[in-house]
Design a protein around this nucleic acid. Sequence first.
DNA 1: TTTAGCACTTAACACGTTCGAGTGCTAAAA
DNA 2: TTTTAGCACTCGAACGTGTTAAGTGCTAAA
Lengths: 347, 347
Amino acid sequence: MLTQRQDAILQAIVRQYTVTGQPVGSKILAQHLPIKVSSATIRNEMAELEEQGLLVKEHSSSGRVPSTKGYRYYVDNLLDEKMMIDSSDMSIIQNSFGTNLNKIDEIVSRSADILSDLTSYTTFTLKPEQKQVRLSGFRLVPLGNHQVMAILVTDSGDVENQTFVIPKNINTDELESVIRLINDQLAGLTLEEVLQRLQRDIPMQIVRYIHSPDGVLNIFDSILSHAASERFFVGGKMNLLGFSHNHDPNDLQELYGLLDKNENLSHFLDPQDDNIHVQIGSEISNKLLDDFSLITATYDVDQYGKGIIAVLGPTRMPYSRTIGIVSAFRQELARQLLGYYHRYYDQ
Amino acid sequence: MLTQRQDAILQAIVRQYTVTGQPVGSKILAQHLPIKVSSATIRNEMAELEEQGLLVKEHSSSGRVPSTKGYRYYVDNLLDEKMMIDSSDMSIIQNSFGTNLNKIDEIVSRSADILSDLTSYTTFTLKPEQKQVRLSGFRLVPLGNHQVMAILVTDSGDVENQTFVIPKNINTDELESVIRLINDQLAGLTLEEVLQRLQRDIPMQIVRYIHSPDGVLNIFDSILSHAASERFFVGGKMNLLGFSHNHDPNDLQELYGLLDKNENLSHFLDPQDDNIHVQIGSEISNKLLDDFSLITATYDVDQYGKGIIAVLGPTRMPYSRTIGIVSAFRQELARQLLGYYHRYYDQ
DNA sequence: TTTAGCACTTAACACGTTCGAGTGCTAAAA
DNA sequence: TTTTAGCACTCGAACGTGTTAAGTGCTAAA
């Protein structure tokens, strides 16, 4: 599609621009280019590249800036083969998880922070897919004064809890019976199955113990759906202020509104396959994110499922480095979680 | 100190400026002023007010803007006597707490959101002072696979919990004994006392059951200090983007860093007495907050202690309305919490 | 004590100029 | 056929200039 020289020129422009942030002109480029050609030649090539939609001018006589399509070509074809991750980055990644992380949520949430520290962008991490997780059991702990804490435990060691006030007309004994019933019938099922059963079969049986079971069932419903809902962790939220070129307070507020709701983002993060994916500028198809690029990747914790990590930065980012970091990090995170699961099941 | 006319002029300038955000000139002011004087007269008075440091010019021939001292004088002397809260605000406040708030944290955290929705500023709320709260008991719930959830309950109904992995060399029975020991000896003491005892007397006794008690004690330490640490809730964080006049990303990031750490803010929020306090611009003595005003107030839940609410907005804010809202809100919040406590202890 | 009037100041805006970096095009050189 | 030097052209940024509108201080008269 492009000649070798055109490749070299496009590559040089992208690199130069990610460093300086200024449109790149032919003269300066001629100096920095390894091949020795005059600026005029470069101008001709640039015109060709612009025709193909890989470069854009900000005005009729300014230097060139990569277009979304240009970045796309760069990422697809021109990334440094030796996309070797910087060794100092590597050692940071390998030492960044402390030894005192004993919960999945802690590990995955910490991941978002590490990743954002490393890139100085905004990051997202999702726990390994929970669909195959099974209910290990409910616990019910009376706390006095009609308060009760309900605890849900899954076989992967996830714990979800919620305290609530039980209606006066229900005593703890009745509740205990219900819990026993639920544990007997539902332990070992997946969370989805549990949710179904809880809405169909269980209410019929529960009436034996409690007259109006709705209040009680809502509790389990609530805690269960909380556990089942994928939640993600966001790191470096405020970094957005630094690298967003748009300083309009309204847009920023809207953008932050976006980050606060799972629903909004899960759409963008949904993985196609297990490669590292780069979505650039307008490819993300959200007006607010036109100047951003999103790098997403799955991480694979063997039989324990797959999770997602993502980095949101400016379109003008050092793709090579960022992708390198994501690539190394997904492996390290998988390693950490594998460690967790092994410790957990070995006990 | 000031003549009646000067009062009227200063008042008019402050009000005009909070509405338009533009420096106020003599001519326009002459029209909006109830007393009929010429612009020349107003100029003379303005010069006098400027001499006293109540007004400042942005440049030698611009209109006047209130100085910190000017706002101070306005707040102290010129606020509308009938600082009656707007009746629509009032009804919002009274209906904003849903009926399904059954935990102190929920009520107080919700408060921050309501208050920020109402003012469109950033808000802070603190729970009632916890010093007199006593330990009602620890619970320990085995979750399987060497996981345990520790639950701390206070006599005010606060619940704090944490799950952790117990070392392999400790079995659950041993832990149960420790819990029984702790409950016997510490229930009924204030959290501070509990913390002291946990560090002094208890370790000696615990050795009977467990050889190396450090790991176990750390757990209680951690959960306890978590419960005892005043934490505040922040509402409308992102509103800051809207009303901050400083759009420099670095300053904004620093500012948000400030909001994320209790330590930083508790200093500013510390209440002198039970009045509503207004700190204006440079009075807050933090460079980053020079263009902000902070309104703080305690709320009094009778014998259950006092908490704090605060609103952070621009120096150029409608003080009368904001103070009115804070004043009405502190009462409503106290009422809500009183309701909570009554329900709680009546059961 | 108040006011009208006047000279003065300043920011904001529109306008023109210059400068530098960049471009496209063409004709000659390789 | 490809590359290059040269040249005319374009545009934004920076700067100076003039004008206007809103504001000021000051003074002398009401």
